[in-house]
Amino acid sequence: MEKNRHMPILLELYLLFAEIGGTTFGGGYAMLPILQRELVEKRHWTTEEDLMDYYAIGQCTPGIIAVNTATFIGNSKAGWLGGLVATLGVVSPSVVIITLITMFLTNFADLAVVKYAFDGIRAAVCVLILDAVIKLGKKSIKDKWCWIIFLAVLMVSLLTDVSPIWLVILSGVAGCLLKPVADRSADKKERISASGKVDGDATGGDAAGADRNSEKGGKA
């Protein structure tokens, strides 16, 4: 990255993450829809896959997920200074708003208007998270094994108090064990369908790979 372009990029990082911090209700997960829109779809600074990696790492490293993700993205865009600036950006609105509230409003959360507004906001936030999860799922769940990991993690975290740290570590191990298996069946599939045509559509290929997998699983 050229040195003279650093200043605008740092400013852009700060403002973007300040906007994200100021429009996110409920923390790191609620941030995801805005990150997808601003970083992946609009600016192409990162991919859905990288975003998921950041979240996965954010889950099992100390600190608040929103901060971890901001540091990651800022760092990947403009080095450690970028990470610092993005993180300061994401926390700035909180600091300002909470400071104002503690100064002027003592019973902010008890105000009827705030309660009614938040009934609506919560409904919107769960819809936004659902939409974000569907987008992520299309990228991250590529075959039968991924579905198994996804469902297992979902069920365990819904029904038990097991820490996300363990789920992240275990699925990393599962990835090491299952990826070679998935690759092997994908290879086999490719050889069978290698009729001169290049399989350009990645999702189509993956779906076929998944079918292949379930056949194999059925026999085993």
């Binding site: 998921m52 991250s140 769940i141 579905w147 996804f150 993690v153 975290s157 992240v168």
Partner: peptide, 24 residues
Amino acid sequence: IFYGLRPASTGLIAAAGIGVAKIA
């Protein structure tokens, strides 16, 4: 590792979303 982490990450976020939906 990331092949396993990505669906897990998606699952954790889905669970968090369901948690919000339960309250909301």
